Simulated assay, not measured.
Amino acid sequence: MHELEHYVMSIIFHYRYAGLFIMLMGGMIGIPVPDEFLMTFSGFQTILGRMNFAKTLLVAAFGSFMGMNLSYWIGRRLGIPFLEKVGPFLHFNEKKIKSAEHWFQRFGDRLIVIGYFFPGFRHFTAYFSGMSKLHYGRYALLAATGAFLWALTFITLGRILGAHWEKITFILHRYLVRGGIVLALIVFLIYLYSIKRGKASLED
């Protein structure tokens, strides 16, 4: 087990709900927190009677939701102009950024819920939802739904796995990271295809 995981376990052990809320909110902003590990361990604590299942679920879901909201508003305040400033370093020109913004406004909101389950991808959907000025009411509903389902999945998993929670979580995390990379690649290819099809329609 890495030092970070030991630190996370120590915080949950000593501060329980407050530690869970703060760390999940920070993790959604982009602070390197092993979110799935954190929630599965919290689920395991409910078996030991140190934490209540319903309260743990609500705190985890609310902490995740608040973090996703902060990310949304940071993205919205910084906006596309910020992305245009750093774009040249990421090989993004103004035309590509506008195309990405348009594409995300049309299709990206569908990724908000599923994006929770893939490390790194959830941060992209939160920040870019704000940058592309996705309607906040729709975003909040999807973010809240995703936060609840994500928390329910991993806290329940920790409760079901019992003493085996740690080993299974590390294996699962490895596959989720790979899945996130594949999902990002698929989204990127669909994005490129939509741009190419848009160019073809303009030429016609």
Rank of each mutant, 00 (worst) to 15 (best):
F13D: 14
D204F: 10
K98Y: 13
S194I: 06
M39L: 15
W165Y: 15
F53R: 00
I97E: 03
K199M: 13
V86L: 12
L134N: 03
P88F: 09
Y136C: 13
I22E: 04
M51K: 06
P119F: 02
Y175Q: 08
L20G: 01
L78Q: 12
G120Y: 03
A100W: 03
I155L: 11
F121N: 01
G180R: 00
G158I: 00
L142Y: 06
L183Q: 04
H6T: 10
H14M: 07
K55Q: 14
H91Y: 11
R106I: 12
H2R: 08
I80V: 15
F44W: 11
Y17K: 05
K55L: 15
E84C: 09
A140I: 11
L58P: 04
I47M: 11
S194H: 08
A200N: 13
K85P: 12
A54E: 12
L48E: 10
G75M: 05
I171V: 14
E166P: 00
W103Y: 15
F89R: 14
T40S: 12
A143R: 00
G137D: 10
A184I: 04
S132K: 04
F41Q: 00
H14L: 10
T145N: 07
G179H: 02
T153V: 09
T156V: 11
I190S: 11
D109Q: 12
F53T: 02
L176R: 04
A60P: 00
V177P: 01
F92S: 05
I160E: 03
I171T: 10
I155P: 00
